[in-house]
Design a protein around this nucleic acid. Sequence first.
DNA 1: CGCGCGATTGAGTAATTTCAAATCTAGTGG
DNA 2: CCACTAGATTTGAAATTACTCAATCGCGCG
Lengths: 187, 187
Amino acid sequence: MLEKLRQHIEQVVPLSNEEFAWVSTHFTIAEFPKKHFLFEKGERVNHIYFVASGLLNLLYYDEEAKEHIVSFAMEDWWESDFYAYFHRTKASMSLLCLEPTMVLCLSLEGYHSLCTQMQKMGSFFLQKSNAGFIGSQQRILSLLMSNAKERYEQILHHSPALLQRVSKTQLAAYLGVSRETLSRLKI
Amino acid sequence: MLEKLRQHIEQVVPLSNEEFAWVSTHFTIAEFPKKHFLFEKGERVNHIYFVASGLLNLLYYDEEAKEHIVSFAMEDWWESDFYAYFHRTKASMSLLCLEPTMVLCLSLEGYHSLCTQMQKMGSFFLQKSNAGFIGSQQRILSLLMSNAKERYEQILHHSPALLQRVSKTQLAAYLGVSRETLSRLKI
DNA sequence: CGCGCGATTGAGTAATTTCAAATCTAGTGG
DNA sequence: CCACTAGATTTGAAATTACTCAATCGCGCG
């Protein structure tokens, strides 16, 4: 678990054993079964989660209880309702396990401690945040400019493994089309 | 100009006169007329831009030369093709002035210098990046779940000033609908 | 005045949604 | 091993929505 986190961080910044030992004190390990909600809409969001194994699903239910998938979080992803986390407000989204999942949990105090006490970790999170922002802009562009079939093909090209792990209904909720339409794309 | 930047930064972290003097050495001032491209697709992206006054437009042209607007950057926004900037690759998008615009330009070296030499600036950019990521996720959700009329109303609610400053054609390219459809929404 | 640009309107076409029904699939218990 | 069920997926058909292309309108400016 922790070793996975270390490898993940060290892809960005090198850490000595002592440094990583200190970093790791900020995390708690948790394990959840499939279909467990790490948090639901309206609840406090006390952690961001590093996915060591499994698959998470950040989703939003609209007024008609229709499900919209903001993101999937596979291994080595960080996930949370970041707005609620950073602003200490209640979640507008829910975070669900699509598979049995092991996560490392980081509180906001822990996050601030890591960022301010160790410059490397500040750099690490800055880089992750920039990457997340860039990825989101790519997805916005994809939603603006491509139809559902093209978006499907982009995922097929960019993260083929994901397609093996999520249902077509979930994929449709991520692509922004009805499951019937996705089914008719004849891919 | 620089005073505007200082106020902007100090909304997040306080700065002494000396500190800000040092920070400001990293920026260059530039002014561009309406319709000027700060960079175009295929060019190197040497700076991120802090908009002191005016209005910028980050856009992408698809294969059919159709224009898709990734974002508008008003006063106090930071804008660039962030992927190209951070990876020192060529721009996939173009950055255009919709109004006469004054910007403060920050090179990647300057960015790294600011982040590593002064912890406060690292915190500042981390917070900006997180905010940008959160904002992008909101827009993704809006694209997934709302129709064009609802998206229009969200902008009307969230940044009414913007609607006074961009053409309906540009707004349509931002909302992800044709200008004819936007025109028919009867708002 | 007349030009040019953006915005609007009209008409036909294409894509997507909805609701309903049918089909498929994996897991369970007899 | 088979039947059965629950859930997911696919298909059908009608209705809605959005798009394209073309024509028209409105307005500011030389």
